[in-house]
Design a protein around this nucleic acid. Structure first.
Lengths: 198, 198
DNA sequence: ATTATAATACCGACTGTTCGGTATGTTTTT
DNA sequence: AAAAACATACCGAACAGTCGGTATTATAAT
């Protein structure tokens, strides 16, 4: 693929992301994407077989980024309870960096309800994260830092809290300082999970 | 309005709900609703001015039911921490009663992102719930059962957890026993909020 | 170095269909 | 008869995707 081609492809993806985020997937027409991107329809269909392919490309791109971010976070985590709280603290960073992309969340979730391919791509990494958290929590239990709860269940709770925060952040960005709420919430949860020193 | 007319209206609403939930709002055509409901297009547009009006009617119906359910729960709550846990326990009931309607959640959230009217109708009651929880938590603090946290923040955390659980319940119904996870999660959270008896 | 060849990248008018909504007419109820 | 409830045929706009063709760039031959 040539330089110009790559640039065209990027233009299409970037524009599509903006439009999907602001108008929604269904409401965004291919013609609209092409016009905003300064690209012809022929170019569009040269690079992508269908509109959905663009969507999937964006989804995978997004998930890959999230994955990387997550990995570095878990790697550099210290003690277990503190590590989890640290993760909540960096949620500040995550929220900030993902601000423009957050509305796409809703699009992904919405589409996943109707398209099995999108569903698989959405659900798999999030189960992955649950397992990942479960591992951390299990470790915390073995270290004696956390109470002997069911790690999978606890992990699901953590993920649920995170999802809920993101959802609120998407729907009502001005409603609160969601990164602070995230930190608070994670602290409450960790306190509830932590072993009592009594 | 006559009996037949009322029945027609109900047919339309019920059918629309099923289709919106399974296919999505955009993907569901008015013609499809009419056909499945055994009603003509004329009848449809006699009862509802637009497709969105049907959607709004469903949304309001849904919210009214949820509101009533919530109200009775809070009224019959005993001590504050136990009251919150009780509410989590009935989430079992909520999940069950809402089973078929859960996918509609996603539709509401998704639509609210693009339609200010839907947004207002969606966001207002949920802010209402947050305030409601905040009141309960404040009361719990005054009673000395809970630590002196910021009630609004804590309430947002509770609501976030609830939202996250619902979202997971929608996207991955078979992934776990979400009513149990809800109970667990609320217990962890309450434990984290509860005053330490040390 | 220049031309020929081929492959890639791109263009934009066009199509068949789908959809929300309307216009007009018919039946049922009061 | 009058009004409410319903039915059917239809409209215009918008849509994803197609297609025949044109630039542009890379590769090969002379």
């Amino acid at each position: 693929m040539q330089k110009r081609a790559i640039e065209t492809r990027e233009h299409i993806l970037q524009t599509a992301q903006l439009l999907f985020a602001s108008e929604g997937y269904d409401a965004t027409g291919v013609a609209e994407i092409c016009q905003q991107a300064g690209v012809s329809k022929g170019a569009f269909y040269h690079h992508f077989p269908t509109k959905q392919a663009v969507f999937m490309a964006l989804l995978n791109e997004w998930l890959a980024g999230l994955n990387a971010q997550m990995k570095t976070l878990l790697d550099q985590a210290g003690s277990i309870p503190q590590g989890l709280i640290d993760m909540a603290r960096v949620s500040h960073e995550v929220f900030r960096s993902a601000k423009g992309q957050l509305p796409m969340f809703l699009e992904f979730w919405h589409e996943s309800g109707h398209d099995p391919a999108v569903w698989k791509a959405t659900i798999e990494p999030y189960r992955h994260y649950t397992d990942l958290f479960a591992g951390v929590i299990r470790q915390g239990i073995e270290e004696g830092a956390l109470r002997a709860v069911d790690p999978q269940q606890a992990a699901r709770v953590v993920v649920a809290l995170a999802l809920g925060l993101v959802l609120q952040g998407v729907m009502d960005p001005e409603g609160a300082a969601w990164d602070e709420v995230a930190q608070q919430g994670m602290r409450f949860l960790i306190d509830g999970l932590a072993r009592r020193n009594e």
